[in-house]
């Protein structure tokens, strides 16, 4: 039998585009080959290689929830060659997608627990997948708390969804912007994520924390979570490193002996603490 070329992407049609911020976009992607779409499955936390043919591939998470069938979504910032080319695409255009790759958040093991999401800026997308997964199976979890910060109001992504979560009685949403990043209409907190988290002081009892953000935020938030009583094996994150293949072969995303693409990207802080600082 002919072996499938593992590097050959699915062809995806851009079904919709949301401009999240001036340089961040969310694409909804549908499989052009419906049969491929039907067979496609993924779990929260996994990622893929998105390609613009002629420019190359770029790695980001699947930002939509596996509970939503028929499409995947990705959210990316216009940064390099591929993301700039992606950003110039329009609804109806074709791009490539390989995946899903990597391990997953062990959501099944969290049944009956509370979930605390702590995140900042463009790091919300990987957790947004888990948030919607939890909200779509809301009966499986106790409290769901989201603490989300950005440099400014303009830099908050998924604004329409933040509004939706704000209105829901079964989600506690705390949004914050850095001092100076607020607008006149801003009703959320003003301050950095660790400070806001400390003030909110969510309970760590029977709670899983998911922490994802820029390195400085992680560094300053970890002591707060520890103070709140979270143990490192109950704090999950998702790491990123430069990748090409996504499947443990091209050799560049390793942190010590683990490949972020294959052994991650999801790690507990108990695991991260054992890793050399190569991310």
């Amino acid at each position: 039998m002919e072996e499938k070329n593992v590097y050959q992407p699915y062809l995806m049609r851009i079904a919709s585009i949301i401009d999240e911020t001036p340089d961040v976009k969310t694409f909804r992607l549908e499989f052009i080959n419906e049969e491929e779409g039907k067979q496609f499955n993924f779990l929260a936390g996994q990622f893929g290689e998105y390609s613009v043919f002629g420019e190359g591939e770029s790695t980001f998470c699947i930002a939509s929830s596996p509970t939503r069938d028929g499409y995947i979504e990705c959210t990316f910032r216009k940064m390099g060659r591929v993301t700039k080319a992606l950003a110039s695409k329009e609804v109806g255009d074709t791009i490539g997608f390989r995946g899903p790759y990597g391990n997953t958040f062990p959501i099944d093991r969290w049944k009956g627990k509370s979930l605390l999401f702590v995140t900042g800026g463009i790091a919300l997308p990987p957790l947004r997948c888990v948030i919607w997964n939890a909200l779509d199976t809301r009966e499986n979890f106790k409290d769901v708390t989201v603490v989300y910060g950005a440099r400014s109001v303009q830099d908050l992504v998924y604004k329409h969804e933040l509004d939706e979560w704000e209105k829901r009685s079964d989600v506690k949403l705390i949004t914050t912007v850095d001092p100076g990043g607020e607008t006149k209409e801003w009703k959320g907190e003003i301050g950095f994520v660790p400070t806001v988290l400390e003030k909110a002081a969510p309970s760590s009892a029977d709670t899983i924390a998911l922490l994802c953000g820029p390195p400085i935020m992680i560094k300053l938030t970890m002591p707060v979570l520890t103070k709140l009583g979270f143990s490192p094996d109950n704090i999950f994150t998702t790491l990123e490193n430069r990748m090409k293949c996504g499947i443990g072969k091209c050799g560049r995303c390793n942190v010590g002996k683990y490949f972020v693409c294959k052994d991650g990207p999801v790690f507990t802080f108990a695991q991260v603490n054992q890793l050399p600082p190569e991310y």
Binding site: G54, E55, K249, C250
Partner: peptide, 14 residues
Amino acid sequence: TCFDIQDETDGTRG
């Protein structure tokens, strides 16, 4: 065995 992946195109075929 490590490798890089690169695209090249003439604008249409690549």
